[in-house]
Design a binder for these strands. Structure first.
Length: 500
DNA sequence: TGGTGCGGGCTGG
DNA sequence: CCAGCCCGCACCA
């Protein structure tokens, strides 16, 4: 863990791409000098080398919904992308965005998921399969070798990002928490009045439709949205989130980013911590606006009343990871995202729109403040509880040019684990503001502020046809999802875009 | 119940 | 032979 190596230059690109190796090589690079930051949204033909102590690498996590695929090789874990679940009618959510849920990994659960109606318009849900690897799903490979976990991705996701796993988990745990906090007082009240009465207490809960089936909340809209440049972190636990909140509150010199709520008009400074969900009874006490004010567009059943409350709260969490206002730009994206197919598939997550959103407030770089255990478990599943204080990275803007010449991507997820050898970078990275980098396009130059800790110059081989050829991307080390959408053009850098 | 990993087996290129 | 995929199973939370 040589701190001396933790220079921006080292962070500047995927170490895994610097070395020449393939996941199928009989011999992997031995004792890599550096490790990459964990990338939650790998996209494109990329390779990373993670420390075997990197928890998320140990768990083979990905923001994409990846399922295990048998490759008949016990040493290499292969996963293929399931795509994203969207509304078959492509209905617009109240904020104008689209529903993009994380497909369940389990086949059975996924089928069940797809049978559910769109929570917004009640039409069917549809699974958009990933076809980003020569018509097949994007595949990810994981291989443990020595003290390194080698990661290789093949293919470019041709669909929006689903809700990240961390978001899904956070949402579910939030639901559970809310249920717990809700039931608790209910039971108390029930017991108090008539102690001697033999009463089926469960009947009381029949009037609580919304939370009886937390799984229904899987179809919460918006919470399943790709996060613009899915920032630097995912919360392994709500506690981590709380810690994050506290941290952000504590750092008063850092301008808090604005949160995105379902209503695009509502942007509020990030509250200190609102992930602790209010129970239905507390819904009205929320200082924040209620979602789905447009009652005509949403179901009026009790489920939705509660669901909205939940979503609001969950969004308070989720939006912590997303700091952009896309909704007002979506019409602009559509022009640039003219992907073949009936649906205009947006992926907000791909396009950190800072350049297009002057109101956007950059966030400080992500970093971990705690020390992780030194254990170096095997590649196979290692479920660990990491107490990390994560901080969302500032989302640099994306630059994409036609023909994939060069792009500046968002740091979609640089999970800087404290065990990472490059930890020391982040102390330095605290020295905001971020450096200004000028990315040059064929038609314009645009100053882009990108925090130095999030820089990665990525070299990636191009998809099959161009395999062998390599392009260099200047991008944040988190390697946000890349090109691959609709001609690989970011609407934010479509110069003729009306949004400019 | 669902996420995850393993591995058998089938199919097509 | 490889890749993709389906399936069942086991383990875990």
């Amino acid at each position: 863990m040589p701190a001396a190596e933790a220079q921006p230059a080292d962070c500047a690109w995927s170490y895994g791409m610097k070395l020449s190796w393939d996941i199928n090589d009989p011999q992997m690079p031995q004792k890599p000098a550096h490790f990459d930051h964990f990338c939650e949204w790998p996209d494109g033909y990329v390779r990373f080398i993670y420390s075997s102590e990197e928890k998320k690498a140990q768990r083979h996590l990905s923001g994409w919904a990846m399922r295990n695929t048998n490759n008949h090789n016990g040493h290499i874990l292969k996963k293929s992308c399931l795509g994203v679940v969207v509304c078959a009618q492509d209905c617009a959510l109240p904020d104008g965005s689209r529903l993009q849920l994380r497909p369940a990994i389990c086949d059975k659960a996924r089928l069940k998921q797809q049978k559910k109606p769109c929570p917004n318009c009640h039409s069917a849900l549809e699974l958009i399969p990933c076809r980003g690897h020569s018509g097949y799903p994007v595949t990810n490979f994981w291989r443990l070798d020595g003290n390194a976990i080698f990661f290789q991705a093949k293919g470019v996701h041709d669909h929006p990002r689903p809700e990240s796993k961390s978001e899904t988990e956070a949402r579910r745990s939030a639901v559970k928490r809310q249920m717990a906090s809700f039931y608790q007082p209910q039971k108390k009240r029930i017991r108090e009045p008539e102690a001697g009465e033999s009463q089926d207490h469960s009947r009381h809960f029949n009037n609580i439709p919304s939370l009886e089936n937390p799984e229904d909340l899987d179809v919460i809209p918006d919470a399943g949205f790709p996060v613009p440049g899915q920032p630097c972190l995912s919360f392994p636990s709500s506690d981590a989130y709380k810690a994050t909140c506290d941290l952000t509150t504590f750092q008063g010199d850092i301008v808090p980013p604005f949160q995105k709520y379902s209503n695009p008009r509502i942007y509020l400074p990030r509250p200190a911590c609102s992930y602790e969900l209010a129970g239905p009874g507390d819904a009205n006490s929320s200082p924040y606006p209620t979602f789905y004010k447009d009652a005509g567009s949403i179901p009026k059943d009790a489920d939705w009343v509660h669901l909205n409350t939940l979503q609001y709260n969950v969004n308070t969490y989720s939006s912590f990871e997303r700091s952009f206002d896309f909704t007002s730009k979506q019409h602009g994206w559509k022009a640039a995202l003219g992907k073949a197919g009936p649906r205009e598939r947006l992926d907000q997550g791909q396009f950190p729109p800072e350049a297009a959103h002057p109101q956007y407030t950059p966030q400080p770089p992500c970093r971990y403040l705690t020390t992780a255990p030194p254990a170096a478990p095997a590649l196979q599943t290692v479920i660990t509880t990491t107490t990390k204080v994560s901080y969302q990275a500032y989302q640099p803007p994306a630059l994409k040019y036609r023909d994939n010449v060069r792009e500046v991507k968002s740091l979609s997820s640089c999970d800087y684990a404290s065990e990472n050898t490059q930890m020391s970078i982040y102390a330095e990275a605290l020295d905001l503001p971020a450096p200004v980098v000028t990315a040059t396009s064929p038609t314009a130059s645009l100053p882009l502020k990108i925090p130095r800790d999030c820089w990665t110059v990525r070299q990636h081989a191009l998809p099959p046809q161009t395999d062998g050829a390599e392009a260099w991307d200047v991008c944040p080390s988190g390697l946000g999802s890349t090109a691959g959408y609709a001609g690989r053009i970011s609407p934010f850098f479509s110069w003729d875009n009306e949004d400019f």
